[in-house]
Each structure stands twice: as C-alpha cells, then as structure tokens.
Computed example of a mutant assay.
Amino acid sequence: MTGTKTHLTGERAPCGRLGDADRSQEDDFEGFRLDDMHYACGCRHMQHEFHDGSVRIRTVRHDGKVLSDEHSGEHEA
C-alpha cells in the first residue's frame, strides 16, 4: 500500500471557512483507496473505495454534524 500526505492552503471547508487542510491518500492498487481531507477548523471529508467496488463518502462539519453520508454497494465500514 502506498500513501501520500499533502498540506494545502486556501481550501474551503464544508462549513464554508477558508483555511489550511491536510489531505491523506492511500491506495493498494487492487481496488482499495482512501482519500481523507482534514480541515483546520475541524471539518472532514472522507472518500473510501473498497475492493468490492463500493464507495463511502462522508462529510462531517467541525461541530460533529454529519452533512452527508453516502454508500454505494453492500459494504458498510
């Protein structure tokens, strides 16, 4: 599995605030991928793709409110 971490500036968080963010990406090149954004305000956006082809996308605001939580396929993480 390979992974990268990138620090970004001037990113718009799900709450609308502008600021820094850290992006973490991992890939096993067999269908499993993680792509997570962590914003300075505390918001998070996560996209996880699983070996069975299903995808989970979840966005959480800095106060803990889930803004979206989408699943495709049968996999539940």
Rank of each mutant, 00 (worst) to 15 (best):
H75K: 07
A77R: 12
H7T: 14
R56Q: 11
F50T: 10
R58T: 11
C41I: 06
L67Y: 09
D20P: 04
S24F: 13
E70H: 08
R23L: 10
D52K: 03
A40K: 09
F29R: 15
R61H: 13
G19L: 01
R61I: 11
G73H: 06
D52Y: 04
D52G: 02
F50S: 05
R17A: 08
K65F: 10
A40S: 11
V60C: 02
M1L: 14
G42C: 04
M1P: 12
K65L: 15
G10K: 03
I57T: 08
H7Y: 08
L8D: 07
D69H: 09
V60Y: 01
Q25M: 09
D35E: 10
L67T: 13
S54H: 06
M1V: 14
V60A: 02
H7W: 08
D36P: 03
R44H: 10
T2I: 15
R33V: 14
H7D: 14
T9I: 02
M1S: 14
T59M: 04
I57Y: 00
D28S: 00
Q47E: 13
E26L: 15
A40C: 04
K65I: 15
S68G: 05
H48V: 15
D35L: 04
E11Q: 09
H51A: 11
T2M: 12
L34I: 15
R17H: 10
R56A: 03
A77P: 13
G3S: 11
H45F: 03
G53M: 07
D35R: 11
D36E: 11
G53R: 05
D63H: 12
T6V: 08
Q25S: 11
V55Q: 09
R56N: 12
V60N: 00
G19Q: 00
R56I: 03
L8A: 07
V66Q: 04
Q25I: 12
L8R: 05
D69I: 12
C15N: 08
S72Y: 04
Q25A: 09
H51R: 13
Y39I: 09
Q25C: 11
D28Y: 08
L8M: 10
D28P: 01
V66K: 04
F50N: 05
T2S: 15
D63Q: 06
L8K: 07
R61A: 15
S72A: 02
A77C: 10
R56S: 05
C15K: 01
H45Q: 09
A13S: 07
E74K: 10
L18S: 14
D20F: 00
V66M: 09
M46P: 03
A13T: 06
P14I: 01
H51Q: 10
H75S: 12
M37R: 12
V60P: 01
M46W: 09
S72L: 06
L67Q: 15
T59N: 01
Y39L: 05
H45N: 08
G31N: 00
G73Q: 02
A13G: 02
S54M: 03
Y39A: 02
Q25P: 09
R56Y: 00
H38T: 15
D69N: 11
D63R: 08
C15E: 02
A21I: 10
V55R: 08
L18V: 13
M1G: 15
G19R: 00
H48Q: 15
I57A: 07
R33T: 14
P14R: 01
T9Q: 06
H48E: 13
G16S: 01
R44L: 06
Q47F: 03
V55E: 08
H51I: 14
Q25H: 12
